[in-house]
Design a binder for these strands. Structure first.
Lengths: 328, 328
DNA sequence: CAATCTCCTGGAAACGGTTCCAGACTGACC
DNA sequence: GGTCAGTCTGGAACCGTTTCCAGGAGATTG
């Protein structure tokens, strides 16, 4: 059926070992042999079976990427960048969307473990112990989560929140809501932690509402609660949630930023396109994916090294959804 | 290192064959044996190596999904649905984003071919001949492209365009622009074809501009050309392009739909969130992915059968970006 | 010219499974 | 009790590739 190394060997009149050697290191073989082999490879359109190679070498050439929701542009951008970087380094990518379900996450990681050389776990929802168990078998790099012994790529959410709340404070806001994302999300806890700290420093009243799913629907569903909380500004867990808020506010004829200011998180493309354009705390999504792959490959080649924990900057982008506080 | 079938066999005190049998068909083995094996499996946390299994059985349990751009929410939704359906049927998914580059597409398909049981090609940019060559080795299903001998899932773009142009015609529009997407895109040609046909019937002047990349930037870049063409309405290749148009129109203080009406294609989530909310020709993105996987599995189990070509409906969703034609 | 060394090659084993085949054991039937 | 069918088991071969090892050929040296 498919053309194998033996077919090439037969056509070239050499052994399978020689074909293999030619492909791995053309210099290790006589020029005549190499020529024969290369000719046969071309003629048959031979391409090595990487799964079989993986069996021999213990190196599959595959990476696993696990994420909560591909419909979230944040993750789509991250995985796109990761995939591109992986391809550049000659790795293929197994993708798993777990639909925000931690149980699926565990199962999938186990099922895929033998087929990949390492995992990129985006915002993993599993417990620390489960992660430790995975890491025992396969190298992992965490994106958007930072715990003990794992290499990770995260965002300086506290600093982002500082920029955002400072911005709101300067506009006169003194009572601000935070719409919390999934309880099991490390980023959510981290954002909230940063926010609490700076709220204390600035003397801003922080009202926490939620938790909601990190989607537009989540934002829509909590918008009325936000309005009822008599705040003059609201920070959302992420841009999708913020867009949901904007949408519901618009439907209820609540002016943004006239009646209430809104700030998102992530800096997805859409945030610039809605009107009013969303003020947001932007992160470099591409870079998260790219750096994640780089870190994973380093971890794979040298599993003993001290895990690197990269923290990328967050940057407030002020657009049209924030303005002076409505006098109360 | 990793736990293999032999470890299980040793612990259970049986042969590897028996372990294999127990796992494949528990009824084929004595209850005592089964118990021992199952106990050992649990104890060791054994999970079969699917790549190794693939070598023996010729069935890898993997599907390849190839798409032009994951940052486009249309493809993200399609692949999310495909991945979910694949997982339900116990397949894992190899993902490849080719960044709109046909050369990458060819290379990737070849490289992955031995590792997957079939390919789902989303809006493939390769030539018909290349596709035929791929299909000789591995089953493929085309999404968003319909040619000769391949199973495919497409959208009734002509009918969508009919609905859209009828809508515009009823609003008094007589001169309408179409912003063309990538030249190599079958959907683009198909949409244009449908549009031309119905424009002829309705007596609407069709102005074709582009081609542009199917992105927001593409829309932004062509917006001024659209304005200069003195049309009262514009249909974009897809929603992203339409959003780009809206964005640029807004920046130039061109009123939508007061000065010009805008219609998109795909029905991505964002189209409902911008303001004015985008009138669009919506397709069932989830269903494309799901049906694509189903078709692929059917093709894999019965390669000889007549290829099924599913055409899904398109549905005009009228929102706020279309209105009566400005009298000229 | 023989001995050594280098370079290249083919054969064989291994990776982790699956599956075919032959043999051992059980129970039933005559 | 012997035969036979049927059930269950372990051994071996195989999937496609890599890698180790031994050996052969040619070149180099004494």
């Amino acid at each position: 059926m498919a053309v194998t190394i033996k077919d090439v060997a037969r056509l070239a009149g050499v052994s399978a070992s020689s074909v293999c050697r030619t492909l791995a290191d053309p210099g290790a073989v006589l020029p005549g042999t190499r020529e024969q082999v290369e000719k046969a490879v071309r003629e048959l359109g031979y391409y090595p079976n990487r799964a079989a190679r993986g069996l021999s070498t213990g190196r599959t050439g595959n990476l696993g990427v696990v994420l909560p929701d591909l419909a979230n542009p944040f993750f789509a951008s991250v995985v796109k960048a990761a995939q591109t970087q992986a391809r550049r380094l000659d790795y293929a990518v197994f993708l798993s969307d777990i639909d925000e379900d931690p149980a699926v996450e565990t199962l999938l990681i186990r099922a895929l473990a033998k087929q990949v050389d390492g995992f990129l776990l985006c915002s993993p929802r599993s417990s620390d112990d489960e992660l430790r168990a995975f890491a025992g078998h396969t190298p992992i790099v965490l994106l958007n989560r930072r715990i003990g012994p794992f290499p990770s790529v995260t965002v300086d959410a506290a600093d982002g929140m500082r920029q955002a709340l400072t911005h709101l404070h300067a506009l006169g806001h003194r009572r601000v809501a935070y719409v919390a994302g999934p309880r099991s999300s490390w980023s959510n806890r981290e954002r909230l932690r940063g926010l609490r700290a700076v709220a204390g420093t600035l003397g801003v009243d922080l009202v926490e509402v939620g938790n909601v799913p990190p989607t537009v629907e989540g934002g829509v569903s909590i918008a009325d609660v936000v309005l009822a909380s008599t705040v003059t500004a609201v920070l959302a867990y992420n841009d999708l949630t913020a867009l949901g808020l904007l949408n519901r506010f618009h439907a209820r004829s609540v002016a943004v930023p006239g009646d209430i200011s809104v700030i998102g998180f992530d800096g997805i493309l859409l945030s610039a396109l809605v009107s009013p354009a969303l003020t947001t705390i932007a992160v470099e999504m591409d870079r998260i994916g790219r750096v994640g792959v780089d870190l994973l490959l380093e971890t794979m080649t040298d599993p003993g090294r001290t895990p690197i924990r990269r923290v990328l900057p967050a940057q407030l982008i002020v657009r049209a959804s924030t303005g002076p506080a409505r006098p109360s």
